[in-house]
Amino acid sequence: MSGRVLHAQLHLLDRQLIDRADGHLVGKVDDVELDLDADPPVVAALISGRVEIPAGRIAEVESAVTISTDGLDLDYYDNWIEHHIIDKIPGAGDATE
């Protein structure tokens, strides 16, 4: 990642976040945190909802941003709905036919 020049607003903000491990969609880049002490300033972290994703987790920036999600709780709401609603409906874990 280091050294690549990106326009933060154009290339990062509001982009789709993808989990590198399974390709699942895990949120949007709601905000970008810059490290202003560095010269030139560099991206320190991405913010998605309440979760802060350190810049080191960013694997790839294309039309979406691929990250490694280990230990980040990006699926909190999805899991909550999964456990409380969707899993109670028969067939929730089946692939469609």
């Binding site: 789709q16 976040l17 699942h24 969609l25 895990v26 949120g27 899993d87 067939g91 929730a92 874990g93």
Partner: peptide, 16 residues
């Protein structure tokens, strides 16, 4: 919102 969507995954993986 960037949530997982679609019928290409199982329903529980796209619960929202």
């Amino acid at each position: 919102r960037g949530w997982q969507w679609g019928k290409f995954v199982r329903p529980r993986e796209a619960s929202r």
